[in-house]
């Protein structure tokens, strides 16, 4: 029913020959927010690119809405999967609305201009991410948090069933980190999206995600609800440093402290 993406025994290696990911099984359902944790180089970004069809795994199968990703054309994929990166660099000045409308690219023909429907979708996406009031502003004038909201609006404008976020909060301060995670969780549940978010913000991921995947050297070390994954022994095994894990006194979600 509600399965958006499923990976079975997926293995991928870059040109250097070493396996960047191997034996990977992962399912994401509609309305499910899944966090991907792991040290640098553990394969988080590679995983997202495979789900996005930008990298083709040498082993295993990736299915999107039941159909192998390798059967999709690039435009079809862009209508189903959207990606939000760490930070966006716009060399030239586009308005926030123009940036959001870029999300309509896979729906338009070569010489076609955006129409009423595209404007409706963009408007809806910007309302959902609280950035409609920024529509006319240049992307260069926006703060980091505002920019990320615009980028999430662009992802929504693709009308995807799956949204991938690659460390969306790395360059944001505490308030904007919270804002972005609030937004992601609300959108996941309200719109029934499947969402994978790769992040180094372990506490936030633990507080917001329905499920976590902990990667180590291209393999899933462990996966489950945050309480199962965020334990001192798992953290120490994967991040190779000593930590203590307790509960956030207000919310009860696991909390990691370096010791």
């Amino acid at each position: 029913m509600g399965r958006v993406i499923s990976l079975r025994q997926v293995g991928f290696s870059y040109d250097d020959g070493a396996w960047a990911l191997t034996g990977l099984d992962l399912d994401v359902d509609r309305g499910e927010l899944v966090g991907v944790l792991g040290p640098n180089g553990s394969g988080k970004s590679t995983l997202l690119k495979i789900v996005d069809g930008l990298l083709a795994p040498q082993e295993g199968v990736v299915r999107l809405n039941g159909r192998p990703v390798s059967d999709y054309s690039r435009a079809e994929l862009a209508r189903e999967v959207a990606m939000v990166g760490q930070e966006s660099h716009f060399r030239f000045s586009f308005s926030a609305l123009e940036v959001v409308l870029m999300g309509r690219f896979p729906y338009l023909g070569r010489f076609q201009f955006e129409g009423e429907r595209d404007m409706e979708v963009a408007r809806d996406a910007m309302e959902a991410t609280h950035c409609l009031y920024l529509a006319r502003r240049s992307i260069h004038e926006l703060s980091g948090g505002e920019k990320q909201r615009v980028m999430i609006a662009r992802a929504l404008a693709q009308e995807p069933s799956m949204v991938l976020l690659d460390e969306p909060t790395s360059f944001l301060d505490l308030r904007f980190k919270k804002e972005v995670f609030d937004l992601i969780r609300a959108l996941t549940h309200e719109r029934g999206l499947g969402v994978l978010v790769a992040t180094h913000d372990i506490d936030l991921a633990a507080a917001y995600c329905d499920r976590l995947v902990l990667l180590k050297s291209g393999r899933i070390h462990t996966t489950g609800i945050p309480e199962e994954v965020i334990t001192a022994s798992h953290m120490e095994a994967v991040y190779e440093c000593t930590v203590s894990v307790d509960r956030n006194p207000k919310t009860g979600s696991p909390r990691v402290t370096l010791v």
Binding site: D52, L54, R74, A75, L77, A78, A82, M83, G85, S88, H89, F90, R91, F92, F94, V99, M102, G103, F105, P106, L108, R110, F111, Q158
Partner: peptide, 22 residues
Amino acid sequence: SFSRHLNLITAGEDTARQLGVD
């Protein structure tokens, strides 16, 4: 005929690729 492709490429090649530009 590549004008919209160029818009996306100025916004970043990864972005352009993700959105379906070859």
